[in-house]
């Protein structure tokens, strides 16, 4: 870990004064990376005591979640368990009890890939060192992405929470140096790797996530299904966050987001278009899976994710429409 200057911010406005500083809140991803010198910030601004840890009601039954609300508290919050069970389930499926107590809402969105080549400072990685190459493409890529990849990078985003939030149409609220506040739909928050895998979000230097908003609870049933090597404390190979409503024997609305497949929580309008207006059943479900995986590309060790994603999506759709009106 390289030396850094440390300061504690008293207000969000004070926190965003220094555009060269990195924010530290829970620290559970940043410090992991700093110990390995994958991240080498020269200045840390401690935002952990800012007044951004509330969960407030907003119009129509939605919620505004402070960026510093710990993952454990968000999962256990009665209003989240009641109105957005997919989010509660996604959070509970992630990490360990100790990590959930410390990791924050904002930090969870910004956590970085667990690709082994990103972590290994002796390996070639365009995300860590732009232009150096990608050892993952021809290497041990079992946990890496099959959608949204590029010549430069095939890393996956590891979050469960972000997948559920993507399915719930979450909006990220920020404060920029200079005082501007932005509302960024989560669907616009992450960037595809393209030629610049080191740029992962649309955040500007020094821009602070202050809250995440969830719109009014959606109609229908919600579920989060995570497929992984162990029963607990392991990242997703494939995960699905699903919200589906059935009316008069037809799918009235569907919202599906996927983890383990791409460089960000993955959502594809074509998947949902294949379902809305159709009768629940394997014909529609197979069409949805076809839409999801039309451009999927395996890199050898992760080829299995493609049929696994198909089966997991279909299983989730069956679960969400079983005995539905």
């Amino acid at each position: 870990m390289k030396l850094f200057d440390y300061a504690r911010a008293d207000t969000p406005e004070a926190a965003v004064q220094d555009m060269s500083a990195r924010f530290i809140a829970g620290g559970t991803n940043l410090l992991d990376l700093m110990k390995l010198q994958v991240e080498t910030p020269t200045k840390l601004v401690d935002i952990s005591r800012l007044d951004l840890a509330e969960i407030e009601e907003i119009d129509d039954g939605g919620l505004r979640i402070g960026a510093l609300v710990p993952n454990a508290d968000l999962a256990a919050e009665p209003r989240v368990r009641e109105r957005y069970p997919v989010l509660s389930r996604a959070l509970l499926a992630g990490a360990s009890g100790q990590l959930r107590n410390k990791a924050t809402t904002g930090g969870n969105l910004l956590q970085r890939t667990r690709c082994g080549y990103f972590y290994d400072t002796h390996a070639r990685c365009n995300k860590r060192e732009p232009g150096s190459g990608c050892d993952g493409r021809e290497g041990f890529n079992r946990i890496l992405a099959v959608l949204g990849t590029s010549e430069a990078c095939i890393a996956t985003h590891p979050s469960d929470m972000a997948v559920a939030m993507r399915a719930l149409d979450a909006v990220v609220l920020t404060l920029a140096p200079g005082g501007d506040r932005r509302r960024i739909p989560l669907g616009d928050f992450y960037r595809l790797p393209g030629d610049t895998p080191q740029i992962e979000t649309v955040l500007q230097p020094g821009e602070l996530i202050t809250h995440v908003e969830l719109p009014a609870p959606p109609a229908g049933r919600q579920t989060y299904r995570k497929v992984r090597d162990r029963a607990s404390y392991a990242f997703a190979l494939v995960s699905v966050a699903g919200v589906v409503a059935v009316e008069d024997g037809k799918i009235a609305s569907a919202s599906l987001a996927f983890g383990g497949l791409g460089p960000m929580p993955w959502r594809d309008a074509a998947v949902e278009a294949a379902l809305v207006g159709k009768a629940p059943g394997d014909a529609a479900f197979a069409a949805a899976a076809d839409a999801l995986l039309a451009d999927a590309q395996g890199y050898g060790e992760n080829d299995f994710k493609i049929p696994l994603a198909r089966r997991t999506l279909i299983a989730v759709l069956r679960e969400l429409t079983e005995d539905a009106a």
Binding site: Y6, T28, D32, G97, Q98, N101, K102
Partner: peptide
């Protein structure tokens, strides 16, 4: 030393955390 084993667990303000992954 990387938040993966839990041997470093302590209670901070009553909550269990990994003491290796915090300054």
């Amino acid at each position: 030393d990387h938040g993966q084993c839990g041997a470093c667990t302590v209670l901070v303000n009553g909550r269990r955390i990994n003491s290796c992954l915090t300054l």
